[in-house]
């Protein structure tokens, strides 16, 4: 029988496109960078200015990337001029509302935290010193080591990292999204991207201020998180496979069908996971400090996480059983 019901275009299940994947990546990276910065700062001896380059890199990345992400998010709305309605209407059963509330707290905190780390530049040497002077008193009054602020920031960084996963996993219309492991996977990969970006950023822009010991600490951290991601991905797909029905079908399709299967095996696994592990057991064996390889390692981790977000978003919306 011919199809006589009219165009099927509106039934495409591909609703969210690359800006959302990039937002998910940037939000995770922001959260990861904030955590990275705090973890390095919490290492004994790192709690006073001049701040380690890695602390500064993470502190700067966190607010910048979340803002960039939110920009993308707003302009990806079909009614971007109405975005402010998100800020005054809340639905507490919606992960998006919860995310908005989380970002309400997380974003300003990340700015204050960065301001503390860049006090001299902001208020004395930088081009905006004159403009920002009135705020100096506030930042000064917070002090260099505000435990409440740092703990809250860390907590909300974790929340933001996880929320990006829940945003997708709350939808049972898509089997690949609707899995309890997705938020953890996103948190882990967010942390890994935060670490990588901090190293990359620190070594590129604050190289002289980076303590080799701190860099090694982060590399070790990354080396633990990356295999963790592999484990989570493994558990996610195997778990889906054993759930039966649509889930089984989607798990198989997503790993074997079309361009997204290539993205997964080459981009996510090959570039994002295998390459860093390979670098770790070869070039950076026994914690060798080879800046070139460390930078390469960071780049492949970041590229891998971008692929992961793209893969999950697109494969999730493509394979629905």
């Amino acid at each position: 029988m011919n199809h006589i019901a009219g165009s099927l275009e509106q039934y495409s299940t591909l609703i969210w496109h690359w800006p959302i994947a990039v937002y998910l990546f940037l939000a995770g990276l922001s959260a990861g960078a904030a955590m990275t910065s705090l973890m390095v700062k919490w290492i004994e001896g790192n709690n006073k200015a001049p701040w380690d380059g890695l602390i500064k890199a993470g502190a700067l990345l966190a607010p910048l990337t979340i803002c960039l992400g939110l920009f993308l998010l707003i302009f990806d709305l079909t009614r971007p001029l109405h975005f402010w309605k998100l800020l005054i209407h809340y639905n507490f059963s919606s992960v998006m509302t919860l995310g908005v509330l989380g970002l309400f707290i997380y974003t300003p905190l990340s700015f204050i935290y960065a301001a503390i780390k860049f006090k001299p530049w902001l208020f004395e040497t930088g081009p905006f010193a004159g403009l920002l002077k009135p705020f100096k008193g506030i930042i000064d009054s917070i002090g260099d080591n505000p435990a409440w602020l740092e703990r809250t920031l860390f907590l909300f960084a974790v929340i933001i990292g996880i929320y990006t996963g829940f945003l997708l996993s709350a939808m049972y219309s898509y089997p690949l999204f609707n899995t309890p492991l997705l938020p953890i996977l996103f948190l882990a990969s967010g942390l890994s991207s935060g670490v990588a970006a901090s190293i990359l950023f620190g070594l590129l822009f604050f190289k002289s201020e980076v303590n080799q010991k701190n860099a090694k600490y982060l590399l070790e951290l990354d080396l633990r998180v990356v295999p963790m991601e592999l484990l989570l991905l493994f558990a996610l797909f195997v778990g889906m496979y054993f759930q039966g029905g649509d889930k089984t079908l989607v798990a198989i399709q997503a790993l074997t069908t079309g361009v997204w299967a290539y993205v997964f095996w080459v981009g996510v696994i090959g570039i994002g996971i295998a390459t860093p592990l390979l670098i770790a057991v070869t070039a950076l064996k026994h914690h060798a400090y080879r800046v070139g390889y460390i930078l390469l390692n960071s780049v492949v981790v970041l590229v891998g996480v971008v692929f992961l977000r793209l893969y999950i978003l697109y494969a999730g919306q493509t394979f629905i059983g």
Partner: peptide
């Protein structure tokens, strides 16, 4: 026509 425009 939008429902069926080129009947196979």
């Amino acid at each position: 026509n939008n429902l069926l425009d080129d009947a196979a």
